[in-house]
Structure formats: C-alpha cells, structure tokens
Amino acid sequence: MATETTPSTLAIEVEAVTKAFGPRLVLKGIDLALDRGDFLVLFGPNGAGKTTLIRILSTISRPTTGRVSIAGFDAKRKPVEARRLIGMVSHDTMLYRDLTAYENLRFLGKMYDVPELEERIHSLMTRVGLAPNLHQRVGTFSHGMMKRLSIARAFLHDPPVLLLDEPETGLDQQGIWMLTETLHALGSEKKAVVMTTHSLEHGLRGGTRIAILARGKIVYQEATRHVDRGRFSEIYRECTEATR
C-alpha cells in the first residue's frame, strides 16, 4: 500500500473543506497544503473553527464537503491508512486514568502495530522524562506529567504528520518550554506539523508558517520568517476583527 504514495505527495492536502453542524457552517472553504518539514501555526479566536479543522485533519470528524488527504491517502476512502500516519495531541489527554502509563502505551502500540513495542515505549518514556513513572497509574499523574505522556502517546508510532491542538493548554511556562524541547527532540523537523494556539508569543517562536483562522476561513497565511513580529499582534487584531 505504501507504493501508492509517491515521494512528491504532500503530507497534508486540504481542498475546499467545509463543515456544517446542522445548518450552521463552521468551516467555509479551507485549503491547505503542507509538506514534510512544514510546521504550520494556526491562530484564531475561540469559535473560529480551529479544533474543528484539526479534528477533520485527524479523520475523527468528516468534512461536509471537500477533500482531505494524508500523504496521498484520501481520508474518506482510505481512512485506516491515513490514520496510521497521524499523531495527535489535543486538549484532552486521551489517556485511560485507570491504566498505567505502560498499559496505555502498550494498548495503543497494539492498535497501531508498532514494531519492537517494548523498546519504543521505554525510549519514549525516557525522552519525555517519565521513565520512573512507567508503571504508575495515569490517574495519579500531575497535569504536566499527563501532558508529557500524551505527547509520548502521539509519537508512539512515529507518525509523519503531527496535529497539535492547543498543546500548551494548562501548562505553565516551564511546561511550554518542555513541550517545545520534547517536540524538537522527537524529530518534529522532519514531520508535517499543524499546531493551533492562543498564545501569539509561543506560536511565533516555533513553526515555519503562520495562518490565521477566523470565522471559518483562513484569512492570513505567511512564512514565519517574513512576519514582522512586532506588528503581528496588530495584524492578528485586524484579521480577526475585519471578519466580524
């Protein structure tokens, strides 16, 4: 099946995606194209549709119209193949509180058919600094530990596509630094990453591209190095208010 993906296929391709919740249109035509190595930071006010877009990219939610493909696999027609390539960190930890860190990752590893699972779990747990807590129940973890474990969870099957939905939620400044470092340590440079965030400061630091989502549309998109950081908060305000 891997033969179907040619090296030239984009990691994430989104064409004219709309999403309606009943009669309410939440996304009004989104186009995106990300290659491996691209790191898109998605800004936007609450209710702009950031989470909806991430959920559609992750194949959890299905677009009302339009097309999503992950490394050439159409999310509608080949969802299982597409999902295999996606790792996600969301607001929720997606962890079972009653299981230990090890059991959580082992269950997931089985679902993803991760080869050499034991080694993978151990090396990841060391990376995120949770090796001593491997056999501890997740319910006893602190918030920061859970977040780290959920990052390990997203990386378990070494996905080429990473979706991070407000990963800094509930983390203090130390936690955010840890998050950024962990992402780098785990090789986010070679992956296609989409990250949503509220924090302008945090979002401007990482990433290769910046986009602003407002009222269901991408109203601004620019390479991070071309963005005037001093003026960005002004741009952000203009973009999000112009559409109101």
Binding site: G22, P23, R24, L25, R215, R244
Partner: peptide, 13 residues
C-alpha cells in the same frame, strides 16, 4: 426555510 434562515443569520454575523 428554517435552515436557510439559520444559515443567513449566521452569514449576517
């Protein structure tokens, strides 16, 4: 019609 109205009202916003 109801759904059209909802859609229009939303577009207004």
């Amino acid at each position: 019609t109801q759904e059209q109205v909802t859609a229009l009202r939303q577009a207004e916003e």
